[in-house]
Design a protein around this nucleic acid. Sequence first.
DNA 1: CTCCTCTAATTGATATGTCAATTAGAGGAG
DNA 2: CTCCTCTAATTGACATATCAATTAGAGGAG
Lengths: 166, 166
Amino acid sequence: MEQSGKSARQSPTPDELAVWREYVETAEAIRQALAAGLQATSGVSPGDYAVLLALSESEGHRLRSSALAQGIGWERSRLSHHLGRMESRGLIRRRKSGNDSRGAVVELTDDGARTFRASSAPHLRLVRRFFVDALTPEELEAAEKVATSLRRHLKELAQAAVVAKA
Amino acid sequence: MEQSGKSARQSPTPDELAVWREYVETAEAIRQALAAGLQATSGVSPGDYAVLLALSESEGHRLRSSALAQGIGWERSRLSHHLGRMESRGLIRRRKSGNDSRGAVVELTDDGARTFRASSAPHLRLVRRFFVDALTPEELEAAEKVATSLRRHLKELAQAAVVAKA
DNA sequence: CTCCTCTAATTGATATGTCAATTAGAGGAG
DNA sequence: CTCCTCTAATTGACATATCAATTAGAGGAG
């Protein structure tokens, strides 16, 4: 009867599945609300914001493209395409790197810096309105614990997969 | 000194912001892991899965396109585009509705039904592995509470916005 | 130097998502 | 019937995301 033992159960129970659905749908709804707010208040997308934030916080408002990709956790190709769009809107500029002319350096234009300054406060206000204000201090703490557990578990699974491949 | 009062605070504190980032990044990581798993095990995207699930559960494996959009919470245009892609892969079929020939009826093909059956179990296993197994029963309950609070708060804000417009 | 291989970044193809504009038919007022 | 208006769904344009293939230069072996 190992099928009935807890460790042999393969699919979530209906209750577990309901929590899962609530979890993903909620995260998606908030992501979407915030994206719409950011777009409406300052005309930037969440992707734009991530790039502008990373550049704004960096020394000299510039970063190697690979360092930028690393910093915001994007694949390079995604970043290349996105930088192309941002460059055509005048938010950033790309130059060849001095030491290694394979590498590109991405830098914020004045317009990009101005756009980031204009978008930052409204964005943070929305994070507060949509997320922080919705939760009691206890819930906020619980949310952190849940996210941390999920993250840790995912990392372990990824680690196990890597080991299995080797 | 109303700036220092809690109710006047506009931006999240650094701690609150850190929780927010952990929350969104985690949700995004899970979404992405699950999408990759679904693709690898059965060659369907999360969007395909949502459509196939709704049709599989419906009377006669068919739904009015507007009812389908409503059921999975998509905009119509998004659904139209997605159905076009699924139809070209032979997973679904569209017919004109009898009573109202503006309306289209979407139905599962045999191949679509087979594809859904093949993708369902692996998908549910992954939900269990990535989400349910990561959390203690207490954390699972906490996750539900957090999601519910966030959802309720979002709905209230949307309601307030609608009222403000009127 | 020449060849090999590795790395940085871009490019092209395709899938997905959003918005605005359009098409087709329903249904009522006159 | 004709016109008006509303609804259902699609379409086109464009932004975004992923994957595979490619380009350009770095850096070492010979």
